[in-house]
Simulated assay, not measured.
Amino acid sequence: MFEKIEMMRMARALGAHASQRHLVVARNIANADTPGFKAADTASFADSYRSAETTPLRTTNARHLALPEWSPVTRQTGDETGVSPNGNSVSLEEEMLKAAEVKRGHDLSLGIYSSALDLMRTSIGRRA
């Protein structure tokens, strides 16, 4: 029942994305001293959520607008600028910033999910 509600699907997908990115950041931090290790990152949530959509918007009338083909601005990261002499490209400072972003994304998904549940409780007549 709840998987058909777009807001609930988005909150669940945001939480899953935060979990996946947390694993990548933790792997980067764990291999900060491994010679030759290349730091990795996941795609942004907007890009991954948009690509996961399987059904495009339908236009049933010629006056309807189709799905726009714009893309959000993504943050540029330096690829090989901070490589250490042993070939490792992990920057602990950058990974800690990514960890803070992951926490913020996870908290956002929990907030959206909680608000959606409160909204559903209110709509069926129960107090939140």
Rank of each mutant, 00 (worst) to 15 (best):
I5Y: 12
E95K: 13
V24Q: 02
V24I: 15
A18N: 00
I124C: 04
R50F: 02
E6P: 04
S84W: 03
A99F: 10
H17Q: 02
R126T: 15
A26I: 10
S51D: 03
I112P: 10
T54P: 02
V73I: 15
A39T: 06
I5S: 03
T60W: 03
S109G: 14
K98E: 11
F2W: 13
M10L: 12
T42M: 15
F37E: 05
N88A: 10
A16V: 02
E101T: 09
I29C: 12
L65K: 15
P85S: 15
L108Y: 04
T34L: 04
K38M: 03
T59P: 01
R126L: 12
A62R: 06
E101R: 06
E6I: 12
N61V: 03
L119E: 14
P56N: 03
I5G: 13
S51L: 15
G82P: 01
L65C: 01
S48C: 09
N88M: 06
R127Q: 11
R12L: 02
R58S: 09
L65G: 04
V25D: 14
A11C: 10
P35E: 13
T81P: 00
P68G: 09
A39P: 11
Q20L: 07
R63D: 10
N61C: 07
G87D: 13
R126C: 01
S115V: 04
G111P: 09
A32C: 08
L117M: 07
G111Q: 12
G125R: 05
M120C: 01
A100R: 06
I5T: 15
V102P: 09
G111L: 07
G105W: 03
I124A: 02
A16S: 08
R50P: 01
L97A: 10
S44T: 14
T60S: 10
L108M: 08
A18Y: 08
T74A: 01
N31W: 13
M1D: 11
A116C: 12
T42L: 13
I124K: 05
R9L: 07
S48I: 14
A46T: 04
L108F: 12
N61A: 11
V102H: 03
M10H: 11
I29D: 11
E69D: 12
G105R: 01
